Amino acid sequence: MPSPLDDLMERLRAVEAEIEVELAKRGEALRWHLENRRIVFEQGVERLHSAIKTTLSQYIRDANPWIVLTAPVIYALIVPFVLLDLGVMAYQAICFPIYKIPKVRRRDYLVFDRHHLAYLNLIEKINCAYCSYGNGVIAFAREVAGRTEAYWCPVKHARRVLGPHPHYQGFADFGDAEAYRAKIDQVHDRVKIERVG
């Protein structure tokens, strides 16, 4: 019999599916759609977008000096982002096959599509690519860490966790030793079955 938490998770999945439908409707209203993972705008939309674009010279001329001064601080984070990205890719490539944890597809988390927007100038496109990379790397690392935690320590915290990864709800409750052992046994049994097969 499903628990109240299982029912809530099922409702959450249903709401997430509804959100995807609404996002698709928004795309249609804004006159674009996806064809084989490629963004296609309706005829005339790109011309309208180009007309709205702020020119590069105007963008630079209107830039807040404080924002210009802080730009090197923002862009200096590229170094830790790249190191995190490389480290997580290496960790997953080495460890996940040994633990029989399904690998995370990095390309699902690093999405670069804003350069298709004709209303963004070159600096805005570079900024968008940088933000996409930084947030994508963090989301990729979070999923790899979440799968690792699900394998090694599937126990919820006693305190509330803000924005837990998707695997967290399936963890054993804090203080439920039997549920923890059952979760660990499930993981080990899965690994044994995959090794035999």
Rank of each mutant, 00 (worst) to 15 (best):
F81K: 14
I74H: 03
T70V: 12
A51N: 13
A63H: 02
S50A: 09
L84I: 09
V88Y: 03
K53N: 07
M89K: 12
I67A: 11
L48Q: 15
T55V: 01
P80K: 09
Y75M: 07
S57E: 08
V82E: 10
R47G: 08
F81Y: 15
T54H: 03
Q58N: 06
M89N: 07
T54K: 05
F81A: 15
Y75T: 01
P72I: 04
V68C: 11
G87N: 11
I67M: 10
P80I: 04
I52D: 02
L86V: 15
Q58A: 06
V79R: 04
R47I: 11
L69D: 11
L84D: 00
A71C: 10
H49V: 02
L77D: 08
T54F: 00
V68N: 11
V68G: 08
A71D: 10
S57T: 02
A76L: 01
W66T: 13
T54G: 01
I60T: 06
V45K: 04
Q58E: 10
H49C: 06
V79C: 11
A51M: 09
W66S: 14
L56Y: 05
L56K: 05
I67K: 07
S50V: 05
L83N: 11
L56N: 03
T55Q: 05
A63K: 02
M89V: 10
Q58L: 04
I60E: 00
Y59F: 13
V82Q: 09
A51F: 06
L48K: 14
V88F: 00
V79I: 15
V88C: 00
I74L: 08
T70W: 09
V73K: 00
V68S: 13
Q58F: 03
V45P: 01
V88M: 08
L48W: 13
I67R: 10
L83I: 14
K53S: 12
P72F: 03
I67W: 14
S57V: 06
R61S: 05
L84W: 01
W66M: 14
Y91M: 13
L84K: 05
M89Y: 09
I78L: 15
P65A: 10
A90Y: 04
L48F: 14
Y59C: 11
T55R: 08
V79H: 10
S57M: 05
A71T: 10
L69A: 15
I74P: 05
T70Y: 12
L69V: 08
G87E: 12
L77I: 06
Y75Q: 05
P72W: 00
S57H: 02
Y59M: 09
V82Y: 10
W66D: 13
T70N: 10
A63D: 01
I60G: 00
I74C: 03
R47H: 12
A76Q: 01
V73D: 03
Y75I: 09
L48N: 14
L77E: 10
I74M: 07
Y59W: 13
D62L: 05
I78Q: 11
Q58C: 02
A63E: 02
Y75F: 15
I60S: 05
I78P: 12
T70E: 13
D85M: 10
P65K: 09
V88Q: 01
S57A: 08
L69Y: 13
I60R: 06
L86N: 14
L56S: 03
L83S: 14
T70Q: 13
L83M: 15
I60H: 01
P72Y: 00
V73R: 01
G87Y: 09
W66N: 14
Y91L: 13
G87M: 09
P72M: 01
T55E: 04
T54Q: 06
